[in-house]
C-alpha cells in the first residue's frame, strides 16, 4: 500500500472523527442548559424554590423576549455600552503612550513604579462615592470610573508588549533604513497587537462590570439601573431578565473580540488550532 495515500486517508478519517466528537460535545453542553432551565421551571412551579427570590424560568425568558422588542431595553443597553466604550477609548489613548514609555525607558519605568504599583490594586469601585460627589449620577461619572478600572490591565499588557519589542528587530529596521511608517507597521504593530488585544479583552470585561456598578449603586442610567428599579418594584421577572441580558452582553463582547482576533492575529500561535 502507498504510504502517502495511507496518510491522506488517515488524515481524513481523523478529522471527520474529530468533527463528530465536537458535535457530540456541543450537544452535551446544550443538554445541560436545557436541563437546568427545566429543573428551575419545575422547582419554581412546584414551590420548592422560595418564590420571593425566584420567578419561574419561563416567566424570565418570556420577559427577556418582550424586553428585546422594547425601546427602554435598547436605550439601557446603549447607555451601558456607550459609557464602557468611551472609557475604553480613553484607556487606549492614555494607556498606549504610557505603556510604551514604561516598557521602553528604564527611567520612566523606575520613576512611575511605586506610584503605579500603589494605584493598581485599588478597586475602581472604591472611588464611586467620590466621583458621585463630584459629578452626580452622570455619564462623566461612569466614564471616569470605567477609565480608572480598565486602564491598568490594558497598560500592563502594553508594557509587556513594549518589552517584547526586539532590539535586534529594531536594529534590523534601522540598518535596512526602513521608513518610520514601515517600521511601525511591520515591527511595532505585529509585536504589540497580541498584547494590546489581550489587554483590551480584560479591560472590556472590567469596563462593563464597573459601568453596571455605577448604574446599580450610583444611579446612572443603564442596565444596572433597570435592575435596581425592577428590584424596587419587586418585578422579579424583569430583574432576572436584565441580569441575564448583562450576561448575554458579556458573551457578545467576547464574541466580537474572537471575531476580530482571527484576521488580525492570524500569524500568532494563539490562533493555531491545537494538533491533539
Amino acid at each position: 500500500m502507498s504510504a502517502s495515500a495511507f496518510g491522506f486517508s488517515l488524515g481524513k478519517a481523523v478529522s471527520s472523527q474529530r468533527r463528530r466528537a465536537r458535535f457530540a460535545e456541543s450537544m452535551w453542553g446544550l443538554g445541560t442548559v436545557v436541563f437546568v432551565l427545566l429543573l428551575w421551571e419545575i422547582l419554581s412551579r412546584t414551590g420548592m424554590l422560595p418564590t420571593i427570590a425566584f420567578p419561574s424560568a419561563s416567566d424570565v425568558l418570556l420577559r427577556l423576549v418582550s424586553l428585546l422588542a422594547s425601546a427602554t431595553f435598547w436605550t439601557a443597553v446603549g447607555n451601558t455600552l456607550s459609557a464602557a466604550a468611551i472609557g475604553l477609548v480613553i484607556v487606549l489613548v492614555i494607556g498606549l503612550p504610557f505603556g510604551m514609555a514604561i516598557g521602553r525607558s528604564r527611567w520612566v519605568e523606575r520613576s512611575t513604579l511605586l506610584t503605579f504599583e500603589f494605584l493598581k490594586p485599588i478597586p475602581p469601585v472604591a472611588l464611586l462615592p467620590l466621583v458621585l460627589l463630584f459629578w452626580g449620577p452622570s455619564l462623566t461619572m461612569k466614564v471616569f470610573l470605567v477609565t480608572m478600572g480598565a486602564l491598568w490591565p490594558f497598560m500592563v499588557q502594553v508594557v509587556y508588549g513594549a518589552r517584547e519589542l526586539d532590539s535586534t528587530q529594531l536594529d534590523l529596521a534601522r540598518s535596512y533604513r526602513l521608513s518610520r511608517w514601515r517600521t511601525i507597521r511591520q515591527i511595532f504593530l505585529p509585536t504589540l497587537l497580541p498584547f494590546g488585544m489581550t489587554g483590551m479583552r480584560v479591560a472590556a470585561s472590567i469596563a462593563v462590570i464597573v459601568a453596571v456598578v455605577a448604574e446599580l449603586i450610583g444611579g446612572a442610567t443603564g442596565m444596572g439601573q433597570e435592575i435596581a428599579m425592577a428590584q424596587n418594584s419587586a418585578d422579579l421577572p424583569t430583574m432576572y431578565a436584565y441580569i441575564f441580558a448583562t450576561g448575554l452582553l458579556g458573551l457578545a463582547i467576547n464574541g466580537v473580540f474572537n471575531l476580530i482576533s482571527k484576521p488580525l492575529l492570524f500569524w500568532h500561535p494563539s490562533q493555531r488550532t491545537k494538533e491533539h
Binding site: 445541560t32 442548559v33 444596572g224 441575564f244 458579556g250 458573551l251
Partner: peptide, 26 residues
C-alpha cells in the same frame, strides 16, 4: 467539561455585581 462549558461561560459573563439583588432577596 463538555456538559458544563456553555453554562459556565454564560454565568461568568454576567458582571458579578449584577447578582447583588438576587443575593439580597435570598
Amino acid at each position: 467539561n463538555a456538559a458544563l462549558d456553555p453554562l459556565i461561560q454564560f454565568l461568568r459573563a454576567i458582571p458579578p455585581p449584577a447578582i447583588l439583588p438576587i443575593a439580597l432577596l435570598l
